[in-house]
Design a protein around this nucleic acid. Sequence first.
DNA 1: TTGAAAGCGTTACCAA
DNA 2: TTGGTAACGCTTTCAA
Lengths: 301, 301
Amino acid sequence: MGYTPNRIAQGLARRKSGALGLVVPDIESMFYGKIVRYVDDFASRSDYQLILAISNDRQETEQKIIRKFLAQQVEGIIITPVNGPVQNLAFYQELQRQKVPFAFLSSYYAQGIAPCVMADLRQGTQLLTGHLLAQGCRNIYFLTGLPDVTTTLLRVEGFRQALSGRQPGFSDRQLLSCSRVDYADGYDQTIKLLRSGQPADAILAINDEMALGALNAANCLGIRVPDQLAIAGCDNVLFSSTAFIPITTLDQNIAEMCRVMVNCLDEIISQPEKRPGPGDIMPVRLIEPVLIVRNSSQRRI
Amino acid sequence: MGYTPNRIAQGLARRKSGALGLVVPDIESMFYGKIVRYVDDFASRSDYQLILAISNDRQETEQKIIRKFLAQQVEGIIITPVNGPVQNLAFYQELQRQKVPFAFLSSYYAQGIAPCVMADLRQGTQLLTGHLLAQGCRNIYFLTGLPDVTTTLLRVEGFRQALSGRQPGFSDRQLLSCSRVDYADGYDQTIKLLRSGQPADAILAINDEMALGALNAANCLGIRVPDQLAIAGCDNVLFSSTAFIPITTLDQNIAEMCRVMVNCLDEIISQPEKRPGPGDIMPVRLIEPVLIVRNSSQRRI
DNA sequence: TTGAAAGCGTTACCAA
DNA sequence: TTGGTAACGCTTTCAA
């Protein structure tokens, strides 16, 4: 009859807020947009209220946010790590010691600190690179992120594995590391590469924005895609499918990733006795990515 | 010394949660992504905690979310209306009667129910249309949203005003209304239009995704942009600047919009005695948009 | 200035 | 089963 209980008082009495905290580095990127969308989706299905906060890709901010979450009595925290080297690992180790229910999504700062759910980027990059090799590409350049970031390491490992035993094999020269990993980075690095006179016949980018930048750069210089230069991206967001030459990419299956994440955290929350602490096994659950082949890499050899 | 107050208990005792609720129809779109980003930004600056919820473009969900917000004792609610006709106006009128601090952002369901901050879409569309006319276009087609949505009405009004007194003047035939207003809608409608044999020399779309769809459709049919067909979009998100022919668009100045919104709501919250109710003036604050001219509309006549 | 006590709106427990 | 009461962790008020 029109009565709604006060959730705040409920929270106090029950000692649980029914809230889940999610930190993302950036909300304007389509990749994180999808993450927010699906985490919200699965969180509400499990009757959690989602509290979103944006770290602006700064770990200092991320940690401030986590402290706020804790003060707010969130029942669990999902951390989508910033794209940078780990700053203050001790902070997360302290969370672990206090048995705070938290987990990493899409990447991790260090293994064993907390459970993690992410795409199998090593295997995914191997798939993409393998596809480019199968198209006859022999000089593949890889537009990556900063070298000391987890996702970069995993991807480079996949790249290297795919090239191992090939002629020519892997060389560091093929790695072009970008700090902002955005459209402009992809465009600029590609222009620089193509003008340098190096024998590039393929560019693999770690996200679709950068791949689109590469495509436009090639187009500007009059280089034909895919015949002179094959291009592939990653994430399968709108940028790859709506390019004037649709871009080959990798679908990380974000929906599944978020489903597994929320379930995993939910389990940790509801079984306080089994809550993992230092010394316990903290699984990294890898979600299988799917290769999406489009025109940007299909050469008619 | 390591002590953090329990915000829930604080909330109960102080009778204020320090939280602001924000509902958006969709988080994967870059337009709403920007809105979330800036509302979060300004809300945190004013020491509010942002609670985000996604209505999935359904008003029923939106209303469920608002009820939850209320139970959670949020101090104010920002509603970014769904892209559809108003379903249950009585719900919002009830909020008004109860003097709930809430406001509309980027559109409104009806004037006078709550304050609103949004871009001046009428003037913006007039600017865009005027620009296309100045480029010599005489048969401009307008890819709009559903006809009974506030933003569509305002835009069509601007379109009509810009064309009034011209030869040929405004005709309903020039309005192509789209329900999903996404890339595929833009692409499909443009293909249909260009194949119909109608003498189109310009397409104006209500967002950049649709404009990109129009550009790609024209490209597929071998129609040269901008000389045979000029194209313009709206919102100035990444889709327009990264198209292989950069697309003319309208910047809605979302940052400013969100700043004004948060300040406005903050004022309403902090002055409970002046809280507006039925019969009070509820201003619609219009933010001035900026025309961004790019290649897709610059004809060399 | 300091400290003790009374709420805030619920839930949970225990006695009847 | 049903009430009545303590407790949740903090703020606020009022008296000392």
